[in-house]
Write a protein that binds this DNA or RNA. Structure first.
Lengths: 407, 407
DNA sequence: GAGGTTTGTTGCCTGTGACAACATAATAGG
DNA sequence: CCTATTATGTTGTCACAGGCAACAAACCTC
């Protein structure tokens, strides 16, 4: 069919062929997002006929993307076949951070089956990071079971990424400017590489697998050692903006102060809610996220309490803005700001209410993230998987071993 | 076909029937948005075959929604038939404001063919406003040419509207709280009534007919006597949020000050960029928008200049936030803030740049709105027209005259 | 007026999903 | 244990939408 012109249209493709592709894509997406679904469930939630589902699923099976198993009977009637996403189809997930490059292997069924972290002394240069990532990918690729097929590589970057071509425009903590990271890594690995902002990917991951599962309007805020990043899902679709830089929620100005954040902007959320400030009052010079969370939850020092309260108030002001702007169903907090929320959720909620319109804030749910340390692996892998689910029958897959070897 | 599950999916409708409906809808939307298009243009931009276009357009013609005219030849080859949206199909547009209720008649072809303004002494109650609107609608309906068919009524409200059922949750300037305005007006007129926030509708109108035409990512900011409203289009789709309250850009906090806006929120854009403050320094007690714009552009008083500069700086801070959040292609300014922009565009742009990330702001275009006083009429009429374009063959149309009368 | 070009029209064809009938596998109840 | 009921998978047929090719029509250029 044909996309509605002007309204979110990209291509106005033809019709006859596209119906089939569209339905294949929709089914594969459902299966991917659920991991395992029964055929009958696919039929009811898609509205397609049983016979059509049968036909489409078998085509996905022929493509090696899904497989069917007989279900243990659960109720009256003939038990429906269970359709599962293949775990023979994988994507590599890459996260380039200040202190390490991490690469994981994620299956289409949603599991992180391998992960390697390569610590770096200081911020690596982009060339260094790319070669580390390529090395880890090749190692992990060699360890894959024979028959495994690779969709591609997804990269989660703490900075602004031009999504169309994988160029990193600016990653302040890494000191990277205008780096064609996607093409570089693609050349080194021979695989298609997709890149996006880390927090945006985290948001989508939380929406599909985490604590925002089932919601269509999500605001995600993640605070790490490298400042505060954000991601937004609007009506089930990731907010990207004209060039893919949308969702920079940490750099939203909420105050007149001239304190600068890591990107040089004044009075922003990121400049006022700082991990380092907390470490200072706790007199810690370095700490893991877990240690910091413990400290936030138990401290009673007047000075520390005051700092925490001030950060909660600033966070509340920013969240109020996001509620006015997006009217989300759920706000997901990750990193140490989740600790601020659990420390004094009432203060945060009160502050949020006083900074936003009642109509918009009355039903908002605030939650911690649910994916923990696998967040960015799962998020980054969604990039190649989205390519696959969009075009199930035409996306090229790559073999586990580059050259034929006896195994 | 089938909407991609989870990704912006509402209903997962069937397939076979829907293709036709979908294509009809897409064509009608193209025709509606362009006013007049050639068949060959429809074919190329939709990707459908000539013969299919012919078939679909003739069906739209049978439905009385479009008509074809022979084109004057423009180049080589047989001239393509021009397809135009019917001006026999109309919608009523209603705007309830502090000092008046305005009702217009807008054709599917995009023209405002009639408009009546009914001034009110103070803020009207909702009942009063509904009965005025109904009275004006009935008067305008009686004047319609025989054969005209009515799609419905669209209402633009300065406040938060629950879009699904047309309930006005809060319209601070009007003093309305929890008013089922849509159902009220529907009962009085016997027509389907749709309602939405005025600025959101203005944004969509500017995108389709005004200075944001052709862009997919738009931020719209409108400042009137009743504060500052906003609307956003993301990837060609209006930002609505979970319940339809999204886009309240005027209530975004950008400062620590405790100045309150009309909704009681502190330090927001609306509290800092105020029409009344400008009137004060100009020593005007009341002024039309045009008078105010003239004053803004020509004043040289030190006090007034300072006020204008301060407002520009605050506006720039807010726009910087929106650029970081949405990464839009274009920002449209309406009302007196458009005057701030033309007064000193350089200051505004400099301020915007210092408040946003370079990657996101480097290509942003700032413009005034292009629809003038018809903005809200065109915007409100889009609500019923969207219903029609979504379901061209099933939407019920209403006759101009309620009862058969000899004419 | 002839040739080239673009578009509308017509009849036929293909692919896709719906549908109905039947087969299969479970539960429920006696 | 057998039958009735329910829900699902499978198969063959059918309807329908859009593609396609051939032809006709309307324009331009020379």
């Amino acid at each position: 069919m044909l996309n509605p012109a002007g309204q979110g249209a990209k291509t106005l493709g033809q019709n006859r062929d596209d119906v089939r592709q569209h339905n294949l894509s929709a089914l594969l997406r459902m299966i991917h997002q659920s991991g395992t679904v029964s055929r009958s469930q696919l039929a009811t939630s898609s509205g397609l006929n049983r016979s059509t589902i049968s036909d489409l699923v078998s085509e996905l099976g022929d493509l090696g993307l899904v497989y069917e198993t007989e279900a243990s009977a659960t109720g009256v009637g003939r038990p429906s076949l269970q359709v599962s996403a293949s775990d023979q189809v994988v994507a590599f997930a890459v996260n380039t951070d200040v202190d390490a490059v991490t690469v994981g292997v994620v299956t289409l069924s949603g599991d992180v089956i391998a992960k390697k972290r390569y610590p770096t002394a200081n911020q690596p240069t982009a060339e260094k990071a790319a070669s580390i990532a390529a090395k880890l990918i090749n190692e992990l690729r060699a360890d894959l079971k024979a028959g495994t097929r690779i969709v591609g590589v997804g990269v989660a970057v703490p900075g602004q990424v031009r999504v169309v071509d994988g160029v990193i425009r600016l990653a302040p903590h890494l000191g990277w400017v205008e780096i064609p990271f996607g093409p570089m890594l693609s050349q080194l690995t021979g695989l298609p590489v997709y890149a996006d902002n880390d927090a945006s990917l985290g948001c989508v991951a939380e929406r599909i697998y985490g604590n925002a599962k089932g919601f269509t309007d999500v605001v995600f805020l993640f605070a790490g050692s490298g400042g505060i990043g954000g991601g937004v899902v609007v009506d089930g679709v990731q907010l990207r903006g004209a060039a893919g830089y949308a969702g920079e929620l940490g750099h939203v100005r909420i105050s007149d102060t001239s304190v600068k954040d890591y990107s040089g902007l004044e009075g922003t959320l990121e400049s006022l809610v700082r991990r380092d400030d907390l470490l200072d009052v706790f007199k810690l010079y370095a700490a893991t996220d877990d240690e910091l969370l413990v400290e936030i939850s138990r401290t009673q020092t007047a000075k520390a309490v005051k700092m925490i309260e001030s950060q909660i108030d600033n966070l509340a002001a920013a969240l109020g803005n996001f509620v006015n702007i997006f009217n989300p169903q759920v706000i997901i907090l990750g990193g140490f700001i989740a600790g601020l929320f659990t420390r004094d959720s009432e203060r945060l909620i009160t502050g949020l209410r006083s900074n936003s319109l009642a109509a918009a804030n009355e039903r908002v749910i605030i939650r911690e993230g649910g994916l923990g340390s696998n967040l960015l692996m799962i998020g980054a892998a969604l990039l190649p998987f989205n390519e696959l689910t969009a075009n199930p029958s035409t996306t090229r897959l790559y073999p586990a071993k580059e050259k034929a070897t006896k195994s």
